[in-house]
């Protein structure tokens, strides 16, 4: 048996990138996000980037495979779970804000973060890539 969730007031500004604001019970939540974050000192983007996968996006993450034990006894002396107010600015990247009960939550996020800076602080951005140098990844 699950408790009743009561929230009197909620104020949130932004939900973006597959985030969910759920009011009410749910059974199963599967949240997945993959992010390739590239920051460059100059405004420059090569169209084909990100089409090939980095290992961080494919490597399996070890998972604790647990199931709900059947010899756990929950006694809800009060059937209510109450919150006066929630102030939330933003939910992003497959985040879930959930008022109500659920059963199984599975979340996984994979982020690759790369920063590229220019050689000289004031060198202008090249209009075309001059070299074929490659940035290789360890396995």
């Amino acid at each position: 048996m699950k408790r009743l969730s009561i929230v009197q007031y909620i104020n949130s500004k932004t939900f973006l990138l597959s985030s969910v604001f759920q009011i009410g019970d749910s059974k199963e939540i599967n949240a997945r996000s993959k992010v390739l974050a590239v920051q460059r000192q100059h405004e420059l983007f090569f169209g084909s980037e990100g089409e090939e996968l980095f290992p961080v996006f494919t490597k399996p993450i070890p998972k604790l495979d647990i199931s709900a034990p059947d010899n756990i006894y929950r006694l809800h002396e009060s059937p209510v779970l109450s919150v006066r107010s929630v102030y939330l600015i933003a939910a992003s990247t497959a985040a879930v804000v959930h008022i109500g009960s659920t059963s199984t939550v599975n979340g996984e996020t994979r982020i690759k973060h790369i920063r590229q800076l220019a050689d000289q602080p004031s060198s202008p951005p090249p209009s075309v890539p001059q070299t074929a140098a490659r940035i290789t990844k360890e396995e």
């Binding site: 985030s19 008022i99 939550v105």
Partner: peptide, 16 residues
């Protein structure tokens, strides 16, 4: 402030 990257903010009960 923020909930991001497949995180969950839950007001309620959950099994797993």
């Amino acid at each position: 402030t923020a909930v991001t990257s497949s995180s969950i903010f839950l007001i309620g009960d959950a099994d797993i």
